[in-house]
Design a protein around this nucleic acid. Structure first.
Lengths: 252, 252
DNA sequence: CGACACCTTGAAGAGGTTCAAGAAATGTGG
DNA sequence: CCACATTTCTTGAACCTCTTCAAGGTGTCG
């Protein structure tokens, strides 16, 4: 394994706002200092954790891009989410004290391992942290529910449009371009996530290109007409705006 | 509104094991006594809460059967879950401090409203309660992910089979029959939950009946060959056993 | 008993999948 | 650094599942 680890306190972390509640008093910051975490690099295609692993820590993504998936015996797997900087991995493992999916880096990444028992311990004295944890978990519930809604009611064009809008929304919230994006995942992985076959994903991309909505050269996507994507997602009128993943990114 | 409310302490509740952690010391039970809850009856078809309502409480179902759904402007809605005694409603509302779905009773029901700020307060001194809350939320994340997997990869027969097995599994855990069940929801609601049209649900039921797997008289379902249902769910070999909703009920 | 909601079934049609082949990147080893 | 193997992506054609539209049946409740 090619993993480099560094011990460090969150108090010195420059992306702390992503994992920890904001507006802590200096007293509270002092106690946060006790939440020593393990920073780790994860190479592209490496597993951060796998289904069945014991849950020791939750993982905050500092940089990089992950997928979570549930693997099948024959090697097939279904992607359950794509995750980028500032998002938390491992929440599904709390129920049974073991991870129930695989987390794989789709590009070289850097994560912080937050020992879960320390989080719980610290939450006892830091009410804002406690509430923050509740919000993060609730947010994940809402995120997954939005995917459920998408899978249950949208057609291929709508799914892909919602997917693209959701991605650029999250990238934009991180200060990146809201028209250009480089996909870190394959068509197959997108299809797996969207409940479509890779051929359907490819065809739908081609249709978007033909309609002048996007430019696409393999993983390099250029969104020419974001409004058209919004119209495609809304055209069904089956969902209200707040059912659409794009309307509720990881942060607001 | 036809709602009857009773103030009472959890310590006297005979289904407390459903909402609260087990194995509390007598000291701890004393503090639980401060978690005064509001017990309430909810009539069939009545809303327990609706999308947009402020989040004051989480709701523990004492008796009865609920659906949660996200409504669309034109009256259509998508069912996001069916919930029975011992399950918790409202977890999705924590992120934004307001509910993001409707909760509707599908039969006369009785719930306990647990003030969320009291839960958080009490969690600060009761570590087992804190952990219990985390587990409940994590469990909901896993439940929804299993639905995602189903919607993303199963065909109609597999979905309905998984749905029936999941229902009887949960009913069985409550001491009810694992072969007979009375559906509290319409074909349309089942379809909405499974991402299918009501006609498809109806046809699939008919096929199961023709194959001798179940007997079905409208809402009254009799499972004659549960193994056949398991085989249908597994036949795809696309999912491991633990991806199937039935394998992970609300309790184990 | 009549109105209404719910369920079943049929036939035609649409959307997505499957199978197949080839093209374009990417990675690897010499 | 180039050649070759591999992975990824695109596109076509036939097929299949689910949907849509339609009609009739069944149960329930005032």
């Amino acid at each position: 394994m090619d993993i480099q680890t560094i011990r460090l306190a969150c108090i010195n972390c420059n992306v702390r706002a992503l994992c920890l509640p904001i507006g802590l008093s200096s007293q509270e910051l002092d106690s946060i200092d006790h939440l020593i975490t393990l920073r780790r690099r994860v190479k592209r295609n490496a597993l951060l954790f796998r289904n069945g692993d014991g849950l020791n820590s939750l993982y905050a993504i500092r940089t990089g891009f992950f997928k979570t998936s549930v693997a099948a015996v024959d090697g097939l797997d279904q992607v359950t989410g794509f995750h980028m900087a500032g998002e938390m991995l491992g929440l599904d493992g709390i129920v049974d004290n073991r991870h129930t999916c695989d987390a794989i880096a789709l590009e070289d990444a850097e994560i912080c391992a937050l020992p879960f028992d320390r989080i719980e311990e610290l939450s006892l004295s830091l009410r804002s942290l406690q509430h923050h944890v509740h919000k993060i978990m609730s947010h994940e519930i809402v995120r997954e529910r939005d995917v459920m809604l998408m899978l249950g009611s949208m057609r291929s064009e709508e799914r892909l449009a919602a997917f693209l809008l959701n991605l650029v929304h999250r990238l934009r919230a991180r200060g990146l371009s809201h028209s250009e994006l480089i996909l870190r995942m394959t068509r197959k992985e997108i299809g797996s996530y969207l409940g479509l076959k890779l051929e359907t994903v490819s065809r739908t991309f081609s249709r978007f290109v033909a309609d002048g909505i996007i430019e696409a050269k393999r993983r390099h996507i250029d969104i020419l007409d974001a409004n058209a994507l919004v119209r495609i997602v809304n055209q069904s009128e089956r969902l209200r705006p707040d059912c659409i993943p794009i309307a509720r990114g990881k942060e607001r």
